[in-house]
Design a protein around this nucleic acid. Structure first.
Lengths: 222, 222
DNA sequence: CCAAAACCATAGTTTTTCTATGGTTATTTA
DNA sequence: TAAATAACCATAGAAAAACTATGGTTTTGG
């Protein structure tokens, strides 16, 4: 029987242990499972890179958010996913997301296009088993809450380009409008204009930035 | 126990009978089901419209393709869905699609945003039951093949506007490029330019229209 | 082989989006 | 509370993108 090798990257060790023991205990028809873990971004990255020259993982579990939100240099599972897709394209990738960072699903679906996406509150032995079976035979597997987020963003026919996304992102982390100039190659009036447009698109015309961000998150754009 | 009233619109009577008997036989925890049927676009439309003033259906099953493909006036489940959303917005909508017209999923998700989407080869008593439970509690429900199509279109960060879609559509039904001018408010060179762009976007640079259409369908744009 | 269609290229026009600039209003803070 | 700072708004002009008109070349189908 084939052994499936999984690397789980999550900074909560207990959570990873949960995955590990559940998965290694399940009786799959066609394979058994071995789970390796990494509890930091750096360690995960190293293990992924090392696997290129040794033997590759079959599946990667990536926590969406690997470090506290307000860190200066956000290190995300998304980055690891992008890296992995590049250097080990045959390895299947599954994201594990807290509900609170579920709004990143849109960006992740585009940048990584993972085989699976699970919201942590929906993870149990049953969904883990179903997920493994699905991604090994006919991906993708998305949990219900992930699907709800996907549905929300698919249903909208609003077009937001990279600059808009950057502006929304920097606003969402509290960057002042005038300071966004440094991160986006637009002039200040250019950014102000786009903010006006975005407020109009999201129907928060006479409201503040907070309302804009909230609506953008609701619709799955950040 | 509450009775869920369903209207199924499909031009294959036998298929509808299948749904009807399966669903009415299943023992749901919270409700029983009654299925009404309509075997033509017109009849379906009439029943939907009549339901506004009498008592509304809880769920609509809509076949994506209600008339043979090459008909002059294509009458689709999508149109019925758009109508239903407008006049009976609380009614849940589930699309049933053959695999062959599954590429319309993108457009349907935007225009109707249905609670469910099932590819017919994946429909059986088990999936029907799961679907009903899911849409009544926490939509959406998409079958695996529908998900694969959704994933394909989500993963691409290609932006295609209405004109591009029209051009692709008319090409796909065999309209000559020069005749598309009549359907899209662009000049002939304008259309040619967009075709060039599209070929470049889809990496079918030196190939014919057929390759372009195939690729656009693969990626879920038509 | 001929005619139709597809394809390509260029110049000029229109439309859109951007910048530069400067003024007004709101918010923060010393 | 006054001063400073940021957000917001408006306009003119520049730059970029997309479109049209035109005419030529290549490909396709009968």
């Amino acid at each position: 029987m084939k052994t499936i090798r999984i690397l789980a990257v999550d900074d909560h060790e207990m959570i990873m242990m949960g995955y590990k023991y559940i998965l290694e205990d399940i009786n799959f028809n066609d394979f058994t499972i071995h789970v390796e873990t990494a509890n930091t971004f750096e360690l995960g990255k190293r293990k992924i890179e090392d696997s290129v020259t040794s033997f590759k993982y079959d599946v990667l579990f990536l926590d969406v958010q690997l470090t506290p939100p307000r860190d200066t240099l956000p290190q995300t599972g998304e980055e690891l996913g992008i890296l992995a897709r590049k250097i080990i394209p045959d390895t299947k990738i599954v994201f594990l997301s807290s509900f609170s960072d579920n709004y990143r699903i849109n960006s992740i679906l585009k940048s990584v296009n993972p085989e699976g996406y699970m919201v942590k509150t929906e993870i149990d032995s049953h969904t883990l088993e179903a997920m493994m079976n699905t991604i090994m035979t006919s991906p993708p597997y998305y949990t219900n809450k992930a699907l709800i987020a996907i549905r929300a963003s698919m249903a909208s026919n609003v077009v937001i380009d990279e600059n808009d996304k950057k502006i929304l992102y920097y606003l969402s982390i509290g960057t002042k409008t005038k300071d966004i100039v440094a991160h986006v190659s637009l002039s200040l009036p250019g950014i102000e204009n786009r903010k006006r447009q975005l407020r109009s698109i999201f129907n928060v015309e006479k409201q503040n930035d907070q309302a804009l961000i909230r609506e953008a998150k609701n619709r799955g754009f950040i």
